[in-house]
Amino acid sequence: MTEHHVQHIKDYLKSQGFSDFELMDDLTDHLATEIEFSMDSEKLDFETSFENAKQKLLPDFPYQLERDLKILTTPKHNIMMKKIAFIGGYLSALCLTISILFGVLSHQEKTDANSYRILVDTQNKANLLIGEKYDNEWKDYLSKMEDSQLNIIRKSKLFQSFLALSALILSLTYLPYRFYNGYQKSQLELVA
């Protein structure tokens, strides 16, 4: 088998998504041995022997082989790290959603408070004009405006707390996993 033939097999494996060089060496030798056997015993050319070998030896989705290998050889602590990362990612997204919800509610409350403020001001001006004392309606508006302002403060605090919690969970669980994954990929590229 020529160097060109071997390279052809390796290129095929790469095109199928293989990136584990140890596994690629094994499969290249396995396919090459089968091809050599077929070329010798059946007197077929390389291309035909290669096609036959692919159909005979590799599964329908060859990359499945590398996936199976990853599952079998992934240490338990890596699986645990992955679980923590995904649960952390989910919790962070949940906190972010709740924080956005409180942000929207706080904004809504601001609109309500502004409306009550306008009503209180209008009532004030009207009362000054006609010289009447503050009635129950005015007191009601004033109390609602105060309640709204208190709600704005409470919801803004919740918005900030959940936003901070979301960022904290993301930075402690999901981000380290993503960086570690990226580091491993870059190490593989260096070996390539």
Binding site: L27, D68, L69, I71, T73
Partner: peptide
């Protein structure tokens, strides 16, 4: 033995 079973097992045993 299928190659899809053999090599993952060989690599796992090696690791």
């Amino acid at each position: 033995i299928k190659e899809g079973s053999l090599y993952p097992s060989l690599h796992a045993l090696t690791k």
